[in-house]
Measured scan of single mutants.
Amino acid sequence: EPLWIRPDAPSRCTWQLGRPASESPHHHTAPAKSPKILPDILKKIGDTPMVRINKIGKKFGLKCELLAKCEFFNAGGSVKDRISLRMIEDAERDGTLKPGDTIIEPTSGNTGIGLALAAAVRGYRCIIVMPEKMSSEKVDVLRALGAEIVRTPTNARFDSPESHVGVAWRLKNEIPNSHILDQYRNASNPLAHYDTTADEILQQCDGKLDMLVASVGTGGTITGIARKLKEKCPGCRIIGVDPEGSILAEPEELNQTEQTTYEVEGIGYDFIPTVLDRTVVDKWFKSNDEEAFTFARMLIAQEGLLCGGSAGSTVAVAVKAAQELQEGQRCVVILPDSVRNYMTKFLSDRWMLQKGFLKEEDLTEKKPWWWHLRVQELGLSAPLTVLPTITCGHTIEILREKGFDQAPVVDEAGVILGMVTLGNMLSSLLAGKVQPSDQVGKVIYKQFKQIRLTDTLGRLSHILEMDHFALVVHEQIQYHSTGKSSQRQMVFGVVTAIDLLNFVAAQERDQK
Rank of each mutant, 00 (worst) to 15 (best):
V241W: 04
E244Y: 12
G245F: 01
G245D: 05
E258S: 08
Q259F: 14
T260W: 14
T260A: 06
E263F: 08
V264S: 01
G268Q: 03
F271H: 06
F271E: 01
I272N: 04
P273S: 01
T274C: 01
V275K: 03
S287P: 06
S287R: 01
N288L: 11
E290G: 13
E291V: 14
A292N: 01
A292T: 14
F293N: 01
F293M: 05
A296N: 04
A301I: 11
L305I: 10
L305A: 01
G308K: 01
G309S: 05
S310F: 04
G312M: 04
S313N: 07
T314F: 03
A316S: 01
A316V: 06
A321C: 13
E324F: 12
Q326W: 08
E327T: 14
E327F: 08
G328V: 10
G328C: 15
Q329G: 11
C331I: 09
P336N: 05
S338P: 12
N341D: 01
Y342F: 01
K345S: 05
F346A: 04
D349R: 01
R350E: 06
R350C: 07
W351P: 05
M352E: 01
L353P: 03
Q354W: 14
K355Y: 10
G356C: 06
F357S: 01
E360F: 13
E361C: 10
E361W: 13
L363F: 09
E365A: 09
E365S: 10
K366V: 13
K367L: 12
H372E: 14
H372M: 04
H372Q: 14
L373Y: 13
R374S: 08
R374G: 10
V375I: 10
Q376Y: 05
E377Y: 01
L380V: 15
P383A: 07
P383I: 09
V386A: 10
L387N: 08
T389N: 13
T389P: 14
I390D: 08
T391R: 01
G393A: 12
G393S: 11
H394G: 01
T395K: 09
E397L: 10
E397R: 15
K402T: 13
Q406W: 05
P408A: 08
V409H: 01
V410N: 10
D411N: 09
D411Y: 10
A413H: 03
A413D: 01
A413S: 13
L417E: 06
L417I: 14
G418P: 04
M419C: 14
T421Q: 14
L422C: 12
L422G: 10
L422V: 13
M425I: 14
S428T: 11
K433E: 10
K433T: 09
D438V: 12
Q439G: 08
Q439F: 13
V440M: 13
V440W: 04
V440A: 09
G441P: 05
F448Q: 15
Q450Y: 01
Q450D: 12
I451N: 11
R452N: 12
R452T: 01
L453G: 07
T456N: 11
L457V: 09
R459N: 10
S461V: 13
H462A: 13
H468R: 11
H468F: 12
F469N: 15
F469R: 06
L471W: 15
V472T: 11
Y479C: 10
Y479G: 15
H480L: 08
H480D: 09
T482N: 13
T482L: 12
S485P: 11
S485C: 11
S486C: 12
Q487S: 10
V491L: 12
G493M: 01
G493F: 14
T496P: 13
A497R: 15
A497F: 01
D499K: 11
F503G: 01
A505V: 13
Q511G: 14
Q511L: 09
